[in-house]
């Protein structure tokens, strides 16, 4: 189901959570709402779900204005950051909840519950209570519960936010596979750019209640339209109006045109990646990202004086955003 959000504004007292937001989500896509806390991403998700009413603007699903349709009639599946498991019910009853509300026949409910638990790999936990599950299992149960009613849209609010790094990574991969299997239009909220890049087909970057940019992960990374997007979707060095990704910093031992002199302060070995922290003769500190092989070839050492120049940089000035690339010398 396609979703269109038209000029939605939402205030909480004096705080403007959403400021004239417009968004389009294609049927069957997997979209991430990415932004720092307080950027309005969760509010936007809750407006789409019907858990919040926008002050102005409309939400359209499959060409139908649903702005005034109450949440229980919207046919959305929603997953909460803290799972919102029904603690007094077993896993079976949790997953069956939506089906029981819809008064489906018992045998059908049982069959569907078993199918879904198989899908989320919780077959063996059907008679457990949420208190007996780990965080990752609870979130998978919550997903099964949301999927049980065959929602046309699946909305996930920081679904992996409360989990530790390893479980989070597993669930990400699992969510991507699930989306390939089920093909339900999915929107998830995250503040983790890596998670957004890893899982989503489309990323919507939000800041201060507004959408900064929407597009494919690669497009956002390569062609950010604003400084905010540039610095939020990946690491960045700032040189005045210019922004350089750490992997676009070239390090050499001889002065070249456009290169600045800097001293190596620290070298951090992270397996394949090597981080070089640099202190230039003037200006802010920089860091460069090299492969292990590059670092070895250059024979870098701490306290060494080197010359760095951006192979590729982004400029955000009055002439608009543009990329400047160094021609190979």
């Amino acid at each position: 189901m396609s979703i269109v959000v038209n000029s939605v504004t939402k205030r909480f007292g004096d705080f403007v959570a959403l400021d004239n937001v417009n968004l389009e989500v294609r049927d069957g896509s997997l979209t991430a709402l990415l932004g720092p806390s307080g950027s309005g991403k969760s509010t936007l998700l809750r407006v789409i779900a019907g858990l919040e009413q926008p002050d102005t603007g409309t939400v359209v699903m499959n060409g139908q204005d649903v702005t005034r349709v109450p949440v229980q009639d919207r046919g959305v599946g929603f997953c909460f950051q803290h799972y919102a498991a029904f603690k007094h019910m077993t896993v079976r009853d949790n997953v069956a909840f939506g089906l029981k509300i819809r008064k489906r026949p018992k045998a059908e409910i049982e069959k569907r519950v078993r199918e879904l638990l198989e899908l989320v790999h919780l077959e063996g936990f059907i008679d457990r209570y949420p208190g007996q599950l780990s965080g990752g299992q609870r979130q998978r149960m919550a997903l099964a519960r949301a999927l049980a009613v065959e929602p046309k849209v699946l909305l996930l609010d920081e679904p992996f936010g409360a989990l530790d790094a390893k479980v989070r990574e597993e669930l990400r991969a699992w969510l991507r596979r699930l989306h390939d299997e089920v093909h339900v239009t999915t929107i998830f909220v995250t503040h983790d750019q890596e998670e957004a890049m890893d899982v989503a087909e489309q990323i919507v970057v939000m800041n201060e209640g507004r959408i900064e940019q929407a597009g494919a992960p690669r497009e956002l990374y390569e062609h950010p339209k604003t400084e905010f997007v540039m610095s939020f979707v990946g690491p960045v060095n700032r040189l005045g109006y210019e922004f350089v990704r750490p992997h676009d910093l070239e390090i050499g031992h001889v002065p070249k045109q456009g290169a600045i002199e800097a001293m190596i302060e620290r070298i951090v070995h992270l397996g394949f990646e090597v981080r070089v922290e640099l202190s230039p003769a003037e200006g802010d500190r920089l860091w460069a990202q090299l492969t292990r092989q590059q670092a070895e070839e250059l024979e870098l050492a701490e306290n060494q004086i080197v010359y760095v120049r951006p192979a590729r940089k982004k400029v955000f000035d009055e002439n608009g955003p543009r990329t400047e690339e160094l021609l190979p010398a």
Partner: peptide, 25 residues
């Protein structure tokens, strides 16, 4: 109110949410 909201998204009306979620809690 997480559990109550979850019940609403699953199709429960206010009355059903009260009897099935709020009161047992």
């Amino acid at each position: 109110d997480d559990q109550e909201q979850a019940a609403r998204t699953l199709g429960a009306n206010g009355w059903q949410t009260f009897w099935r979620i709020t009161l047992p809690s």
